[in-house]
Design a binder for these strands. Structure first.
Length: 192
DNA sequence: TGAATGATGCACT
DNA sequence: GTGCATCATTCAC
């Protein structure tokens, strides 16, 4: 269990940074479906990214979950990250420099275990199989929960989205990344 | 402190 | 065939 501290919005087929920009395809089909559904895809050949569909059926939009602060089950998250790394190493996939020594993960503070979309998926054992899962189902193993009553809403900062440098304006600098600047788990720059 | 780099599979034109 | 909604490391300043 963790607290989501960083997300990005991808809205509509006009958004040239969104997978929906080509219209419905086999990969992005769930983006055009009902909201609350998971959309998981593979980037750069090795990292999975978790998205949540946000608009009613027919309108393509999703939120990319970029970072999570593990709160409960930190050991399980750590084990999942180790397992992910060892699995890749076992397959001989990846550059030896990138496939870091799995034991290095043990010295990582809990707040940095899921500081990035790829790391988050690794830490929670999320893969493309999870595409289509209803994240609002309170009984689902993978699900979204509301902020606990009484917990104060953090101050939210907005910035441009990350990793879309080749996307033309105005999409590239749309302030559609939302983060809690106070969290150690946030990936990358904290201000625009 | 920051920029450059490589590893990788697959969706897409 | 081309280009990614990434990450960790290396090298320069």
């Amino acid at each position: 269990m963790g607290r989501i501290v960083e997300v990005e919005a991808y809205i509509g087929t006009d958004d040239l940074a969104s997978h929906a920009r080509f219209g419905p395809t086999p990969r992005n089909a769930v983006m055009f479906g009902p909201p609350g559904i998971a959309y998981v895809y593979l980037v750069y050949g090795m990292y999975e990214c978790l998205n949540v569909v946000t608009e009613p059926e027919g309108r393509a939009a999703a939120i990319l979950i970029r970072a999570v602060e593990p709160i409960e089950g930190v050991d399980a998250v750590r084990a999942a990250r180790r397992g992910w790394t060892l699995r890749r190493a076992g397959l001989g996939i990846g550059d030896p420099a990138t496939i870091a020594d799995a034991s290095r993960i043990d010295s990582l503070p809990a707040g940095r275990l899921c500081s990035g979309p790829g790391l988050l998926a690794a830490g929670f054992d999320i893969g493309r199989d999870e595409t289509g899962v209803d994240l609002l189902d309170p009984d689902a193993p993978l699900r979204l929960e509301a902020r606990p009553a009484g917990e104060p809403e953090p101050a939210i900062r907005t910035t441009a989205r990350v990793g879309i440098d080749s996307v033309p304006e105005p999409w590239r600098h749309r302030p559609w990344r939302f983060l809690d600047p106070g969290s150690l788990a946030v990936s990358g720059p904290r201000r625009a």
